[in-house]
């Protein structure tokens, strides 16, 4: 996928070569086009299906005295110190990728643009056409699911 986006970037650049005034460095120009391609890629993905946020809500208990408390089997376990050291490894990278792919597409797009691409939250809202409060809810749900998935994949 990364390769496709890079290829696409060169195509677009060549097509609009006449529009390039040479005011900025070629690298800056190409990076800007690539950045746009990445955002568009995740934006397109995120519009494909809308997922109800309430349905997948099984991390917390829904009723009784402990309403809003951790569901027994979802409560975070202690991570070993080896797990902590391994977070820089290629193995972690592959677990992370797998876990992100299990997220609903809209959540994944939102999470990737916010953390991997390190975009400002305002910008993410604009690109994905969601409200700020909606975005916080999505990021919250995405992290709950990701953390749980990583814990199990370890």
């Amino acid at each position: 996928m990364a390769e496709d986006l890079v290829q696409d970037t060169f195509f677009s650049a060549l097509k609009s070569l006449s529009g390039f005034q040479g005011k900025s460095h070629e690298k800056t120009w190409l990076t800007a086009i690539l950045k746009r391609k990445i955002i568009d890629f995740y934006r397109k993905k995120s519009t494909s299906n809308e997922v109800s946020l309430v349905d997948s809500d099984d991390h917390f208990t829904n009723d009784g005295m402990m309403k809003g408390g951790w569901a027994k089997e979802k409560a975070p376990k202690k991570w070993s110190s080896e797990a902590h050291d391994a977070m820089e490894s290629a193995e972690f990278m592959s677990i992370l990728q797998k876990c992100i792919s299990h997220l609903p597409q809209k959540w994944a797009s939102c999470f990737i643009l916010s953390t991997v691409e390190e975009m400002e939250s305002k910008e993410v809202c604009k690109e994905l056409d969601i409200t700020a409060s909606n975005m916080w809810v999505i990021l919250h749900r995405a992290r709950l699911q990701l953390r749980d998935c990583i814990e199990k994949g370890w």
Binding site: K67, G69, L139, H140, R143
Partner: peptide, 15 residues
Amino acid sequence: SCEESTFLSSKHQHV
């Protein structure tokens, strides 16, 4: 609640 607390933890990664 824990649900609200985790919501804040997540949000405060950004703001």
